[in-house]
Amino acid sequence: MATTASETRPLAALPLLKGQKALVTGANSGIGKATAIGLGRVGADVVVNYVAGKEAAEDVVREIQSFGVRAYAHEADVSQEDQVVAMIARVVEEFGTIDIMVANAGLQRDASVTDMTLAQWHKVLDVNLTGQFLCAREAAKEFMRRGVVPEVSCAAGKIICMSSVHQIIPWAGHVNYAASKGGVLMMMQTLAQELAPHRIRVNAVAPGAIRTPINRSAWDTPEAEEALLRLIPYRRVGDPEDIANAVAVLASDFMDYVVGSTLYVDGGMTLFPGFATGG
């Protein structure tokens, strides 16, 4: 039986990330919103990036500030190099540095391959893949400049790329999205290989089916949810807080030896559930 969104428990307000400075892109709704709030709940100061929806972003800021930490909203399109450079520069100016980069911003422009326009292809790759590269690159520069501050973290910095189960599961009708997430997998591993000697940890979180506005039609009726649950062995649709909890723990020193890994948070969707009865 499926659970409701309220049944996912957020991490307790423990100082897991106390004193650390985090930036979450695409943080005024869905997974990004839950992640930004989750990082604030465990002690991080948080920048809430958004590209549209200023009022929603400010609401997220106020919720984060209620935990007694600092937060502000910053408008920037992560696919635009100059805007990303300026965003990271402001984080350093406002907070002194950055410790955690969560490259979450992403979107879909779905169409069959024969109907997909080049503009749809480019838009998804520009935001989902190039945007993550730009954010990771600029954060890495600051991590390398500052180095490890042992009283803050074992690592010089943490980059967490938001991927998807579709980095390994093909998805007809979504070739641009699946290609972008497949690219995130190899980009993340290559960044991890290059940056690990600098004590910078790069990892990814790959959500499965999560209750967000972007996929409401897949779970907002009993019939739709039952069809979706056939793809999820754990028999519930995920909540944004499931991802937020995973990101918070992955960014903490409890996971200091985890480098270049993807954490699938999917209720078992990547276990090929169609073969559970023998195929």
Score class of each variant (00 low, 15 high):
Ala5Tyr: 09
Val149His: 01
Lys54Ser: 15
Gly182Cys: 07
Gly267Pro: 00
Phe272Val: 13
Ser79Arg: 01
Gly278Gln: 06
Ala206Trp: 07
Val124Trp: 08
Ala76Thr: 00
Glu63Trp: 06
Pro222Trp: 06
Arg199Ile: 14
His174Tyr: 13
Glu241Trp: 13
Ala139Leu: 06
Asp59Gln: 15
Ser29Asp: 12
Met188Gly: 10
Val61Ala: 04
Ala276Cys: 03
Ala71Asp: 00
Thr130Asn: 15
Ala13Ser: 14
Trp219Glu: 00
Pro273Met: 00
Tyr72Arg: 07
Asn104Tyr: 05
Gly106Ser: 05
Phe275Arg: 14
Met144His: 07
Asp82Thr: 14
Val92Glu: 02
Ile210Arg: 03
Asp220His: 06
Ile98Pro: 00
Ile31His: 09
Leu14Pro: 04
Ala105His: 03
Arg137Lys: 15
Gly279Ala: 10
Ala224Cys: 08
Val85Thr: 07
Ile200Phe: 12
Ala276Gln: 10
Val24Met: 04
Val152Asp: 02
Ile37Pro: 08
Leu17Trp: 04
Lys158Asp: 12
Val205Ile: 11
Tyr177Val: 03
Ala227Glu: 15
Leu134Glu: 06
Ala179Asp: 03
Val237Ile: 09
Ile159Met: 10
Ala2Asp: 15
Thr35Phe: 08
Ile169Ser: 09
Lys181Gly: 08
Gly147Arg: 05
Glu223Trp: 08
Gln193Leu: 14
Pro222Gly: 06
Val48Ile: 13
Val265Ala: 02
Ala224Asn: 12
Pro213Gly: 09
Glu142Pro: 03
Lys181Gln: 05
Val69Glu: 01
Thr4Trp: 09
Asn28Pro: 04
Val61Asn: 05
Asp126Pro: 11
Val152Ser: 09
Gly30Lys: 03
Glu241Ile: 14
Leu191Glu: 08
